[in-house]
Write a protein that binds this DNA or RNA. Sequence first.
RNA 1: GGAGACGUAUCGAAGUGGUCAUAACGAGCCUGACUCGAAAUCAGGUUGCCCCUCAAAAGGCACGUGGGUUCAAAUCCCACCGUCUCCGCCA
Length: 431
Amino acid sequence: MIDIKFLRENPDIVKENIKKKFQDEKLELVDKVIALDEKYRATKLECDTLRGERNKKSKTIGGFMAKGQKDEAEKIKAEVNEINAKLAELEELEVKLEGDIREIMLVIPNIIDDSVPIGKDDSENVEVEKFGEPAVPDFEVPYHVDIMERVNGIDLDSARKTSGNGFYYLCGDIAQLQSCILSYARDFMIDKGFIYYIPPFMIRSNVVTGVMSFDDMENMMYKIEGEDLYLIGTSEHSMIGKFIDTIIPESELPQTLTSYSPCFRKEVGSRGIEERGVYRIHQFEKQEMIVVCKPEDSMEWFHKLYSYTVEFFRTLDIPVRTLECCSGDLADLKVKSIDVEAWSPRQKKYFEVGSCSNLGDAQSRRLQIRVKDENGKKYLPHTLNNTVVAPPRMLIAFLENNVNEDGSIRIPEALRPYMRKDIITVPENKK
RNA sequence: GGAGACGUAUCGAAGUGGUCAUAACGAGCCUGACUCGAAAUCAGGUUGCCCCUCAAAAGGCACGUGGGUUCAAAUCCCACCGUCUCCGCCA
């Protein structure tokens, strides 16, 4: 959500930005909202003046009544009634205009950073950098579910029975591995100076509508029947929600938080859920990072955040690359976004394991998150979020890159203190 | 699930139809005085948003939210939301 004052003064920049995002159908909205805004401000001024008059007159009535000047009082009462009649219609218009303007402003995309590559859709995203050698071993790497099944690490049949497609039982060493990865991710971020949070896993509808668009809400969020509660799709929802409508003292910036939560997603409309395995599922766990900072610091944080994810994956010996989201693929609220992708030696390509976004002040403006500096001046901070790691998805990369030909799984150095072993071995009957 | 209480600024809290919401009173915070320095004391300042503006002033809105009554609502009426306390149940 951009500032309407900015739009008013720079309609060309806003239009240019819309074109860059290949959303030409929204171009007309710019002039439309400018006209509405002009009308709104004129109406508001008129309303404010009338209300001011009414307040002034109304106050004198009390005085007349006290002095017993009934006739005078009645005369002014009639005048006030006249003003109120005039106001009734105008106020209705004022409210309607305000609503219409907000509706449009929510749809106009945020101004993207100059550095964002121009492109229509995800096919034009740009590889930024590779880390590690994307090696392919000389044996055929099995499908991740098969790797897990061989060490008795997953039970999809039972999950289908209890919960349906899109759920899993992880068991034994693989379940432990997932917990260990999360614990390691937690400690990794704590060591980077982030504060660890375990947030609420359910949030109220007013928070949901604050942090996401209506369409996303329909397609992602599970609602608790009979309660005003939704299961979170990511801990970003509860973590950003906690700042809604607050004023943060500047001395408390930057807020650098890392949160753990299970995530629940309906994945409506994504065919990926049909695919066997744990790539796209209804329930997964994630370690997230959230930063609220001064505007001038946000780009620096942006680069730091995704490089933390890269560093994390590298300590687990997984080759990764960073892929910058092009203009057309960038969500409307975002200024800039980079995906971290892990190498799959089986598919011989990279696949998404995390996403780092700089939202500029758009999220702050929408949610009324403000910062107060030493002089009492208020401004909107920038917000960023990034995935540290989201097992089970990252398990795919982990297993494919660390499986041995005999089906055993190597545990990288960094995880050994957590796993308390350096290899997961195949049980006798599956050798 | 049952019973009760409450929702006003950073916090506690007064106000129960108008002339104290630029919100009493108390605390906190900021500035200044006193002091070698601090504490204590004294004086002043300290809500957010909108509109307008170079800036300020003036004006408008907000007493949980939304309606209603009224010339006028924090105050009266209705609905909803939330919080707390006790009891019950419970990891």
